[in-house]
Design a protein around this nucleic acid. Structure first.
Lengths: 143, 143
DNA sequence: GGAAGGTATCACGAACTTCGTACTATTCAA
DNA sequence: TTGAATAGTACGAAGTTCGTGATACCTTCC
């Protein structure tokens, strides 16, 4: 394939930087005491993979098992997450969101949705369609 | 403007999640002892804004002044950053990269560049051009 | 059945990070 | 020339990550 130029790559990097910074600043605004990065990622993962175990999460996020264990403790104490011992394998732990946890995830997703909506605002309908198609193509390539 | 659909927004969010995760996992690979997130962002900021002060950085990144001060200490101890008292205003501190710091930033940028290059790989030249144009348009809107 | 070995998780503690409070040094303004 | 404002830092409390070691459970192979 023809290589993208360095300028193109730099533009891409600058855009990602900007988005990441906006994410972070937007998150500071919510009314609740903000969750840290890991905790948010864990809640989102459990929302998408109900009943998963701590080890799945640790592998997925690239952190130590014990770190997920600590984070799970935090989230259980805050009543956002629930541990359950499945009868099938009683070493394991299946994680589920509590109703409060579901509410929190919904709020997070609403915030992200709003951020993305605003991000797309300067594009017209056709451009937006194109951009999302590219992103999907890139993401689904899954290299 | 016509609103993007929820599916479109979800696709966008999934793509960003994926990219963020790839960033994090890629960074764990380098040979050096990895810098934490804040330290990397500080180095990058100083690379683009040579001679800036801690308070500029704190405002830009949305963290406390004292946090930047601690991080600056770390980076000075690791000899990636250098403090300098400008004669013009002797309360202030001007930050500069050391040669080692410049090397570190170059390595980081090379890694990001490679990641972005690989991200663009599944697109053909025309699509890539489009995608980068969209990203630039969105980023420059600067809302 | 039972011992050996592997797996999933947690308890604990060390090292590190963030950030609020209080302080110093310097500049600005009247 | 003081008094207020500004840039930065020292210190300490609270919280986070992760390695080590312990516990409970499952599986396999005699």
């Amino acid at each position: 394939m023809t290589m993208p130029t360095d300028e193109e790559l730099a533009a891409l990097g600058a855009a990602f930087d900007l988005f990441a910074r906006r994410y972070k600043l937007a998150e500071a605004l919510g009314p609740e005491k903000p969750l840290n990065e890991l905790d948010k990622q864990i809640l989102s993962y459990v929302a998408k993979n109900d009943g998963c175990g701590p080890t799945d999460i640790a592998r997925y996020l690239g952190v130590a098992n014990t770190t997920v264990s600590s984070a799970t403790d935090r989230l259980v104490k805050r009543e956002l997450l629930r541990r359950q011992r499945p009868e099938a394998d009683r070493r394991a732990v299946a994680l589920h969101l509590t109703p409060a946890g579901e509410g929190r995830v919904a709020a997070l997703q609403a915030m992200y949705g709003e951020l993305h909506r605003r991000m797309l605002a300067p594009l017209d309908a056709e451009e937006r369609r194109q951009m999302i198609a590219m992103m999907a193509k890139v993401a689904n390539d899954d290299a």
